[in-house]
Design a binder for these strands. Structure first.
Lengths: 255, 255
DNA sequence: AACAACGTTTCATATTATGAACTTAACCCG
DNA sequence: CGGGTTAAGTTCATAATATGAAACGTTGTT
């Protein structure tokens, strides 16, 4: 290899991480050869990396299929990362209250690059599913939380972060800079963001910013649910509850 | 270094993982120098490993303190590991039902070495805290789920897995082989395990085994709560509910 | 102002990671 | 059956890469 690594002396570690990241929701299970091909690594190298990761339980092998999967140590590290996040810990009670008030799914998300990362999720009583998407990432420009978080960034930063063109998920996804900047401006004025079928048809979400002691947007809280239940008339009511929840969390952060 | 790694060509990767694992619940934040000392690594090496991990967002730096913490990519990987776990997905509905029936905290755990790893946790209405300890590990010999899982192992395996002496957490913790083997035998006969103040004073838990299509114990389900609420008379009632829940999950696994 | 402590960078060195080629095992399919 | 195909895992010579001692720069302290 003659390619220059981002930093010297980190090739194998970066490669090992790329192995870990290959295990996605869409492809949670890999065999050696396809994985090596996917990553463009030598089979022997990939095997050694997998073995090292397996010896530390970051990766395990499915007893039946013999294929590689993410292992128990990853679960433990993920739990630690969440528990170490004071934002999440502080928010949890308020988020639960919000989910109970609205009977819809409440989420807490932070910005990571061009994506909104789900730190916590409390299901309303309508759906019988608990915290299924903690750790998931959604395209920021197509979600209410994402737009709330983007609205706090200077335009220059936006241009660095967002891909051009912005990918479209439904006919209502915002894909032009013009439309996005207008929506973000409206979000700032309004104090909350609305994403109506921008990520998925039939899905509406309303998000509000969480501010730290300094007044900076550090996270977003949202309520999401089917457009069937979240009708236009309920929208302002829900928005008020989401904003109140976000404000309470902000106050707990010392605002 | 002249120490032989478990496998050749994996030193830096194993070291990088040891860096990740240094971030525990007790010590979620590290500075460079103490971390290098703790791990017995050179400061420059540790710095390079941290930089590599940070470049991939497995580690981040706290904006205020400048110290290192687990990063967003770990949260994402943890979420993927959980979602990829079909056992957890299959169990979730039943676990929620159990928590609702009993109004106490329901858990799903698997054995990992000498510890029980929490895959899912649904709080009853008494406690306002959601899935705080997913990914946590508890000493198997001192928990109901742990004893259920140990009860399925041949004695020889037990001796390999469990440390001698077994650490004690309360005056009721089982620490002798004799007592443990008797308890495990009783668990097998009874069909469920009870841990009364064995891990923590005031805490009672009742666990039952989840069996796969093959009849092998692959996980344990439990209800845990304060001895104040989980009185002796409620014990058999709770045990029946826990066993029924575990049996329903087992059936879903094809038993 | 001198010192101390810590994060970060440099660089010569050889240890360690690498990948081409090989071995082994399982599995088709004629 | 049995010869052929595929994929997992192993070996080993090579040099590229990780290593750590020492130097550097920055910040805070006495």
């Amino acid at each position: 290899m003659t390619t220059t690594s981002p930093y010297p002396g980190t090739q194998s570690v970066v490669r090992a991480i790329s192995v870990l990241k290959a295990f996605t929701d869409e492809h949670p299970e890999w065999s050696l050869t396809p994985l090596a091909q996917e990553l463009g690594l030598n089979k022997a190298t990939t095997f050694r990396l997998l073995t090292a990761l397996e010896s530390e339980s970051l990766i395990m092998r499915d007893p039946q299929s013999e294929k590689y999967r993410l292992g128990p140590a990853i679960v433990t590290l993920g739990g630690r990362a969440l528990r170490a996040n004071s934002l999440r810990v502080v928010s949890q009670g308020e988020l639960q209250a919000l989910a109970a008030e609205t009977n819809e799914t409440a989420s807490l998300e932070v910005l990571h690059g061009k994506e909104a990362l789900v730190l916590d999720e409390i299901a309303g009583n309508h759906v019988m599913t608990g915290s299924q998407s903690i750790g998931s990432r959604w395209p920021a420009h197509a979600t209410s939380t994402g737009k709330v978080l983007l609205a706090a960034l200077p335009e220059q930063r936006l241009r660095q972060v967002l891909p051009t063109p912005m990918p479209s998920y439904t006919p209502h996804t915002i894909t032009s800079w013009d439309a996005l900047l207008r929506d973000l401006a409206a979000t700032r004025v309004r104090g909350y963001a609305v994403a109506r079928e921008e990520l998925e048809i039939g899905l509406l979400a309303i998000g509000a910013p969480v501010l730290n002691h300094d007044g900076q947007t550090v996270a977003a809280v949202s309520i999401a649910g089917p457009t069937l239940r979240l009708t236009a008339q309920r929208e302002s009511e829900i928005a008020a509850l989401v904003c109140a929840c976000a404000a309470r969390i902000s106050r707990r952060l010392g605002l």
